[in-house]
Amino acid sequence: MQRVNMIMAESPGLITICLLGYLLSAECTVFLDHENANKILNRPKRYNSGKLEEFVQGNLERECMEEKCSFEEAREVFENTERTTEFWKQYVDGDQCESNPCLNGGSCKDDINSYECWCPFGFEGKNCELDVTCNIKNGRCEQFCKNSADNKVVCSCTEGYRLAENQKSCEPAVPFPCGRVSVSQTSKLTRAETVFPDVDYVNSTEAETILDNITQSTQSFNDFTRVVGGEDAKPGQFPWQVVLNGKVDAFCGGSIVNEKWIVTAAHCVETGVKITVVAGEHNIEETEHTEQKRNVIRIIPHHNYNAAINKYNHDIALLELDEPLVLNSYVTPICIADKEYTNIFLKFGSGYVSGWGRVFHKGRSALVLQYLRVPLVDRATCLRSTKFTIYNNMFCAGFHEGGRDSCQGDSGGPHVTEVEGTSFLTGIISWGEECAMKGKYGIYTKVSRYVNWIKEKTKLT
């Protein structure tokens, strides 16, 4: 034993070699072989497995989906700052455009905790909710729209109204504003409101030439003092309507412009014939205590009207009353817009006519005020429907199939267009061939041609 100890002390290297040989010859039971080890760690190889990531292109799944990435790591994937920024906006807080917040056709661009709407022409605001041009839906104005110097929408209202708090709607500024039905039992019968379409306001006024200088022999019209197929109006439903009495009662109609003036057809009036105007009328054979009678003290036909040349060209006249009318729910003026808007309103496509005229061709006159909704007829169809001249200051309205029309005794009465609950004068009943005849239409004086003249002559002093 002493000898062994001496050998170990003198030859430590020998001992180490012996131990190493023993270990190498022993069977290893701690580690699995290569094949079995792979069965336990069965993990798919990654895209760049075996390579240094710093030297390969980034992978979106590896960089940002398996674990949260930084902007720089995302930049490695896209290799483009702009594309990385677009991805980053949604990656950080989701897609803010998912709810489609942009209105009126706006395009949404996502941002971090926010979004941006790219608005089409005519709109602005956070969600493109603000109209900035009158060309689109009248700028959301209830009545009139004008573009300011910086191309912003400025709404306005006709006389007797003021802008509401929203700067879009119009509200009454006087007790009985024009064009409004205020009798409670008839307010439910107000005709369907007309909503502004998209309009090209630059070209809204037709490029028409008034044929002022045409000389033409007097034409022989049949029954051209021209509501057939209409309905009984309720008291106060058309408070701007008046009836004219002269040699015979209810020979023509008219509309209240203001307390002192009536507008009617020029062919209705004769110099030297006494005319009485009755406002607030409903049943011409009954006294309903809503009527107001006034005498006409002055007749002003349009300066281009000449019955000797043509009885229905420039067929418009103004009547001055001896005493002002007292405005109330049964006696209310009709609204008159400017030339541009009167023309736009007419193009809405349908209007209402009213009167006490004959209820059928050569038949009896109506006792109760009649009204009828009539569609506008395109000019080409209008011209083809008659052998008589249709001037540019006239328009056609009615039904091709016949059966409904204005008729004798309705002449001078109103053709009105309702705009968001307020009625505007767009025409004056003038003439036609018979009444409600198939293929024939009622012919009306186009008020847009005469609004400046009306307003100039009827100013209240």
Rank of each mutant, 00 (worst) to 15 (best):
T271Q: 09
G94L: 10
A149M: 11
L369Y: 13
A207H: 12
W261R: 00
T133N: 13
E73V: 08
V4L: 13
G160Y: 02
S350C: 06
N135G: 14
S148V: 08
L20F: 11
Y444C: 03
L60I: 14
K339R: 15
C435N: 04
D200M: 06
G254F: 01
K339L: 05
F121Y: 11
E171L: 12
Q167C: 06
I454F: 01
Y371M: 13
E124N: 04
G236R: 05
F388L: 13
F123S: 03
D110K: 10
L372G: 13
D410T: 11
D131W: 09
K168P: 02
K137W: 07
F395C: 02
R294V: 02
V242C: 03
F196V: 12
S25W: 14
S148N: 12
E281Y: 07
H314P: 02
N295L: 07
T276Y: 05
L103H: 11
C128Y: 00
R379T: 15
W118Y: 02
E129W: 01
A337Y: 00
C18F: 15
N147K: 15
E73S: 09
Q219W: 09
P235N: 05
C268S: 01
A192D: 15
G58C: 05
F251N: 07
T386L: 07
D131K: 05
Y47N: 15
G421V: 03
E67T: 09
S406I: 11
V278P: 00
T417A: 05
V353A: 07
A164W: 03
G246S: 12
G253P: 08
F251A: 09
A250H: 12
Y115K: 02
W356Y: 14
K274N: 15
V296N: 00
A436Q: 11
V273F: 08
F348Y: 15
D232V: 06
K89R: 11
N100I: 04
D410G: 06
E286F: 10
E142C: 02
W240Q: 00
G413D: 05
K51V: 12
G349C: 03
N452Y: 07
N452H: 11
F123W: 14
L369S: 12
R379Y: 11
L130N: 11
S156N: 05
N59R: 11
C117N: 00
E434G: 08
P333C: 02
N452T: 12
A337V: 03
W431A: 06
A380K: 12
T264C: 07
V202A: 13
D410Y: 08
A207E: 11
G421I: 02
V353W: 03
I7K: 15
A173R: 09
S217I: 11
L327G: 02
I7C: 07
K188T: 05
E35K: 09
